[in-house]
Nucleic acid binder design. Structure first.
Lengths: 202, 202
DNA sequence: GAGGTAATCAACACCGTGTTGATTTTCTAG
DNA sequence: CTAGAAAATCAACACGGTGTTGATTACCTC
């Protein structure tokens, strides 16, 4: 009596989603047709419409699944952060989990985050990342305000996502822990210092 | 004897391009049809095909025009940089010109850089920005190498583009000079210090 | 004002879409 | 293992956007 327990729908949905990611990377999201998709997946075209209203419905559902996964991890991170974690122990508590999750879903993430993907997904990811960053800064005060706070957020969020994109597009070298360190060090010390290009506060 | 001197083609091409930007923002790039476009622009559909092969051809041409404009400015920047400019005079030599140029073409740039735009254009912009940054770092040596240099580039480039996106999407408050200062200070001192959230090297 | 070229208009075959009804295959529950 | 249910297949449909064509009209350059 589970939501979708039938093996058949599980199989076909998975086939559709996997093929979808492949095709997005191959010919670009907007050049992917339902006909393409179902032929490649070796599925009757009518079957597609049994599960999705159209291509964009499929996209939405696939994206939502990933984003919910990330939200879940972010929630765990919050809980741990507030209680028993006080900086400079390891790199981050659930941050490693976050990168591991991305790694697991690299096929789809890579496709929609790539140059032929969906810019709307980038936007959604940024919103998620921004939420996390804002929580970190909640309470902290700015000594001086040379520019609107939005720009700090935009800067950090974009930099974060850009580094993740680079990581995914280059075959996921670097372990999840390394990734967490790379990003947080650049954020904290500044990119030039963290990368060894500039001495600390020169 | 100029390339396309006829007023008629200039007018129609402009109409097409302007309407294109509007429609991208309104319904998203991939939901824009040639039929939509020509109806909205009050142009015969056949006329469209007199100038462009298809929607993607129009997109390519429009993007290339913008990118070439930026390349032009980047070239000027190089020339000035190498000769009579030695840091901490003003914010940047041709940087202001760069932001002014973006402002002039804000309609199209905003559309293709937005959540319903073309992720391929983002990629192209990043490549351009990366070139500029790499030139700045040419010759400089890294004291330590905690991670591959690609990540520094990815970080800076993405942060840069993200801030530009935020600027454009929020109605171009902040003058071009301010923008140049905001970005370079975050890059140089690190985002936290530059925004007043962290003391210099604490 | 004459010649040339761009824009319009109507019509065309083509292809992907989304939906339908009938049929076959496959799974789950008992 | 079987019976009933549900999913997948298949064929067919009208619809809408595509890209192209040939003929006609409007407009610009020289």
């Amino acid at each position: 009596m589970g939501d979708t327990e039938d093996r058949r729908v599980l199989r076909t949905k998975k086939r559709i989603r996997d093929t979808f990611a492949e095709l997005i990377e191959e010919k670009g999201l907007d050049r992917v047709t339902v006909k393409d998709l179902t032929e490649q997946a070796d599925i009757n075209r009518g079957t597609f419409y049994l599960h999705f209203h159209d291509k964009y419905d499929l996209l939405e559902q696939s994206e939502a699944e990933i984003l919910n996964g990330i939200k879940q991890i972010a929630k765990e991170l919050d809980d741990v952060d507030m209680n028993n974690w006080k900086k400079e122990n390891g790199p981050h508590p659930a941050a490693e989990k976050y990168f591991t999750y991305l790694k697991e879903h690299a096929l789809f993430v890579r496709a929609v985050l790539g140059p032929k993907g969906d810019p709307g997904f980038q936007r959604k990811m940024k919103t998620l990342i921004a939420d996390g960053i804002k929580k970190k800064f909640a309470g902290k005060e700015r000594k001086s305000q040379p520019f609107p706070a939005d720009y700090l957020i935009a800067y950090l969020v974009s930099a974060h996502l850009g580094v993740v994109q680079h990581w995914i597009e280059n075959g996921l070298q670097e372990s999840p822990e390394e990734m967490a360190k790379i990003i947080s060090s650049m954020n904290y010390d500044g990119p030039l210092v963290a990368s060894g290009l500039k001495k600390d506060s020169s």
